Amino acid sequence: MAEINAYEGPAEAGFGDYVALLKPRVMSLVVFTALAGLVVAPVSMNPFVAFCCILFIAIGGGASGAMNMWYDADIDAKMRRTQTRPIPAGLIQGREALGLGIALSVLSVMMLGLAANWFAAGFLAFTIFFYVVIYTMWLKRLTPQNIVIGGAAGSFPPMVGWACATGGISIESLLMFALIFFWTPPHFWALALFTKADYSDAGVPMLTVTHGRTSARRHIFAYTLVLAPFALWLGVTSVGGPLYMGVAVVLNVLFIHGGWKILRRDDAAAEADGYKVERQFFKLSLYYTFLHFLALMVQHWVGGW
Results as ranks from 00 to 15, higher is better:
Phe188Gln: 02
Trp183Ala: 14
Tyr18Ser: 05
Ala6Met: 15
Gln83Pro: 05
Phe119Ser: 12
Leu174Ala: 09
His257Ala: 08
Leu124Asp: 13
Ile4Arg: 06
Ala6Arg: 15
His292Leu: 10
Trp233Tyr: 10
Ala20Met: 15
Ile102His: 08
Thr195Lys: 09
Ser44Asn: 09
Met67Arg: 12
Ala125Asp: 03
Trp183Ser: 14
Ser200Gly: 00
Trp118Glu: 05
Ala222Gly: 06
Leu225Val: 00
Gly90Leu: 12
Val250Asp: 10
Leu232Trp: 05
Ala163Arg: 04
His219Tyr: 07
Gly14Leu: 07
Ala152Gln: 12
Gly9Thr: 13
Leu98Val: 10
Ile4Tyr: 04
Thr289Ser: 04
Met159Lys: 03
Pro242Trp: 15
Cys164His: 10
Ala77Tyr: 08
Ile4Asp: 02
Leu291Ile: 03
Leu29Gly: 01
Val132Trp: 08
Asp74Pro: 02
Leu174Lys: 07
Asp273His: 08
Phe129Cys: 14
Leu38Cys: 15
Leu207Asn: 11
Tyr7Thr: 05
Ala153Asn: 04
Gln93Ser: 14
Val30Ser: 00
Pro157Thr: 07
Asp74Met: 06
Phe56Asp: 00
Ser238Lys: 10
Met110Val: 11
Phe32Gly: 04
Gly259Arg: 07
Glu12Pro: 08
Ile171Tyr: 03
Val239Ile: 10
Lys283Ser: 01
Pro242Asp: 13
Trp301Met: 11
Gly240Leu: 02
Val132Cys: 08
Met297Asn: 10
Phe255Trp: 07
